[in-house]
Simulated scan of single mutants.
Amino acid sequence: MGDVFETIGTQSRGRVAKWWTLLEDGRIRCDLCTRACTLRDGQRGFCYTRIAQGQKMVLDTYGRCSGIGLDPIEKKPLYHFLPGSQVLSFGTAGCNLNCRFCQNWDISKARENDRLTTTVSPGEIADLALHYGAQSVAFTYNDPTIFAEYAIDTARACHAEKLRTVAVSAGYICAEPRREMYAEMDGANLDLKGFTEDFYWHLTGAHLRDVLETIAYVCNETECWVELTTLLIPGHNDSDTEIRNLVKWIVDNVGPDVPLHFSAFHPDWKMRDVPRTPAKTLQRAREIAQGEGIRFVYIGNVRDREGGSTFCPGCGDSLITRDWFDVCKNAVGESGQCPRCATVIPGVWT
């Protein structure tokens, strides 16, 4: 995967990072994710945002973002979390994965900090969300794992203003920062990008077991509402066997009520020679997941009203109808129940 470190000048902006160890030989080991980058003075880690500087580690993207936008919460995607509400989205730059199919590569693969055009404090982000009528703030565009200190401080500022917080992440993070970050998150969409170690290592540069550990922890050990997303890439992770194994793991380890989104791939970054995901592949994956017991399975990145809508697992009634990211009908409301049969629909509704 080449040389993952880059030497920089000794001057940089930023803030001392939280999770690192000073080694006996003077190098600094990053303890944020399981890459455990060990850096000499002036080197950046794989994610490009953490720098060894004067026997400490500095996060130079703290308080700086690559963009801020107002989105429907369905775009994250979160379908059982305040449906129809607006979320203020922001991110920084860089990433601790190396996904060859990255669909936000201009931000996640940025190697120049001129992508970080806006300086904004945690309190200012909360103020912006209030100003624009958002009910929540999402840490997205790139993975919040690599700006966890900034995300945690912002989440606390949001909670002080009664705003909810959302992480959109690949889940590649060590235990201690994971515990601290997800203690501050009200919702999360976590990627389960495939279900073989070969796929994860060769196409993302990460390990499947670490991602599964994060998903199990956040679902089972925190109060954070979780939904999962799998981007189906033709010829790489879309076989019936892999989809079935993935779904069985979800049912056995985090339960059948965790919503699962199957999203369509489009050619991008270093996989422009791979075709788009056919609609029939997404529909087949949804049928497999439903057959294995997942109660809420969705289709994303293509227009599919049925695949984007929520149905009662008790009586089969249509409860939430969606057209792309628009909520056309919501019969769940604040009750969290099917109005016909009173089946409880898991989620955050009020």
Score class of each variant (00 low, 15 high):
residue 335 S to E: 09
residue 348 V to L: 08
residue 229 T to I: 14
residue 52 A to V: 00
residue 292 E to R: 11
residue 135 Q to L: 04
residue 240 D to E: 15
residue 1 M to S: 13
residue 293 G to Q: 00
residue 113 N to H: 14
residue 282 L to K: 13
residue 10 T to K: 14
residue 269 W to L: 15
residue 244 R to Y: 11
residue 86 Q to M: 07
residue 213 E to T: 04
residue 329 K to S: 12
residue 277 T to L: 13
residue 167 A to P: 02
residue 147 F to S: 12
residue 54 G to P: 00
residue 325 F to S: 09
residue 207 H to A: 04
residue 250 I to E: 11
residue 350 T to R: 03
residue 299 I to H: 09
residue 70 L to D: 06
residue 267 P to F: 13
residue 301 N to H: 01
residue 209 R to G: 00
residue 259 P to M: 12
residue 255 G to E: 12
residue 313 P to E: 07
residue 342 A to S: 10
residue 60 D to K: 07
residue 266 H to F: 15
residue 163 L to G: 15
residue 256 P to R: 06
residue 91 G to H: 08
residue 88 L to N: 06
residue 25 D to G: 06
residue 280 K to G: 05
residue 49 T to A: 13
residue 136 S to M: 03
residue 26 G to I: 12
residue 188 A to G: 14
residue 271 M to K: 04
residue 188 A to M: 04
residue 261 H to D: 01
residue 78 L to A: 07
residue 144 P to L: 05
residue 326 D to H: 02
residue 268 D to A: 14
residue 34 T to K: 01
residue 187 G to P: 12
residue 146 I to C: 10
residue 294 I to Q: 04
residue 264 A to M: 12
residue 33 C to M: 00
residue 264 A to E: 13
residue 20 W to P: 04
residue 156 R to S: 04
residue 135 Q to H: 04
residue 251 V to D: 05
residue 233 I to P: 05
residue 299 I to Q: 10
residue 10 T to W: 12
residue 299 I to A: 06
residue 311 F to Y: 15
residue 196 T to S: 04
residue 349 W to S: 03
residue 42 G to F: 01
residue 193 K to C: 06
residue 11 Q to G: 03
residue 296 F to L: 10
residue 278 P to C: 01
residue 211 V to W: 08
residue 106 D to M: 15
residue 82 L to H: 08
residue 138 A to E: 07
residue 212 L to C: 01
residue 65 C to N: 00
residue 228 L to A: 12
residue 60 D to N: 07
residue 322 R to V: 05
residue 57 M to A: 05
residue 111 R to D: 05
residue 93 A to F: 06
residue 217 Y to G: 02
residue 238 D to N: 09
residue 116 L to D: 13
residue 292 E to L: 11
residue 163 L to C: 13
residue 324 W to L: 09
residue 81 F to Q: 02
residue 39 L to I: 07
residue 39 L to A: 02
residue 220 N to L: 00
residue 69 G to Y: 14
residue 254 V to F: 01
residue 22 L to P: 14
residue 51 I to L: 02
residue 71 D to F: 08
residue 56 K to D: 10
residue 136 S to I: 00
residue 80 H to R: 02
residue 317 D to V: 07
residue 8 I to D: 03
residue 22 L to G: 03
residue 283 Q to Y: 14
residue 177 P to F: 12
residue 152 I to A: 08
residue 281 T to K: 08
residue 266 H to D: 10
residue 106 D to N: 15
residue 286 R to K: 09
residue 47 C to A: 09
residue 332 V to T: 05
residue 286 R to W: 11
residue 302 V to C: 03
residue 341 C to P: 09
residue 49 T to Y: 09
residue 98 N to Q: 15
residue 303 R to L: 00
residue 29 R to M: 05
residue 106 D to H: 15
residue 77 P to S: 02
residue 338 C to S: 06
residue 223 E to V: 02
residue 234 P to H: 12
residue 86 Q to N: 08
residue 42 G to V: 02
residue 75 K to S: 11
residue 346 P to E: 10
residue 267 P to W: 15
residue 257 D to P: 00
residue 336 G to M: 00
residue 222 T to S: 08
residue 299 I to Y: 13
residue 37 C to V: 08
residue 58 V to E: 14
residue 54 G to H: 13
residue 221 E to T: 04
residue 44 R to Q: 09
residue 216 A to W: 03
residue 286 R to V: 09
residue 141 Y to I: 00
residue 136 S to D: 03
residue 95 C to L: 13
residue 126 A to D: 11
residue 108 S to H: 14
residue 203 L to N: 04
residue 48 Y to G: 02
